[in-house]
């Protein structure tokens, strides 16, 4: 409640442009509050090899700490993607539109169907090509290159949102 009040206060002070939640420290917590249904990464505890384990340790025997770090880092990228996805300013939209405006919870982005031939782009497109296309054409925002940290985060978020979907690349 205090955080909400704080957000409102901040928004009022700095005006319309500050109607997004903060980046940096606290951003992930706020993103989790906004989008609590984002699935956690796959549970990899089965690859942990400890003194009592009979697991083959095909990766060479990782500890629980290692696996926790993998999850933390992966989830962090996904949460950053959720933040960018819902922040019109983050993609430089000139019209106040974020990705989430048209794609709540990433719906209708179907990352599991890429790569696929997009007639309108004239090539077999990857998800990142569509992210760039959407940012420029639909949100009137920035060009997002393949290595742009925003592209990487967005791809992570969209993939996470389709946890469990069957990959059908090329599907229209």
């Amino acid at each position: 409640m205090a955080t909400k009040a704080c957000l409102i206060a901040v928004s009022i002070v700095v005006g319309v442009s500050a109607t997004q939640w903060p980046t940096g420290a606290g951003a992930d917590a706020e993103t989790r509050r906004a989008f609590p249904s984002i699935p956690k990464p796959h549970d990899n505890r089965d690859v942990v090899v400890d003194g009592n384990s009979t697991a083959p340790g095909s990766y060479g025997g990782y500890s629980a700490t290692d696996v926790a770090a993998w999850e933390r880092e992966t989830y962090k990228l996904v949460l950053e993607g959720a933040r960018v996805f819902h922040d019109a300013n983050a993609i430089g939209s000139g019209i106040g539109m974020s990705c989430g405006t048209c794609h709540p919870d990433g719906a209708g982005t179907h990352p599991e169907t890429y790569p696929k031939y997009q007639v309108q782009i004239g090539r077999a497109a990857l998800l990142r090509d569509m992210i760039d296309w959407c940012s420029r054409q639909s949100a009137r925002g920035a060009a997002l290159g393949a290595d742009d940290p925003r592209t990487r985060a967005l791809e992570a978020y969209l993939t996470a949102q389709r946890q469990g979907a069957t990959i059908r690349y090329g599907k229209h």
Partner: peptide
Amino acid sequence: DGAIQGPLHADDRR
């Protein structure tokens, strides 16, 4: 009036 602020996304559970 003035109290409705913050990001406006349909899927934002806040």
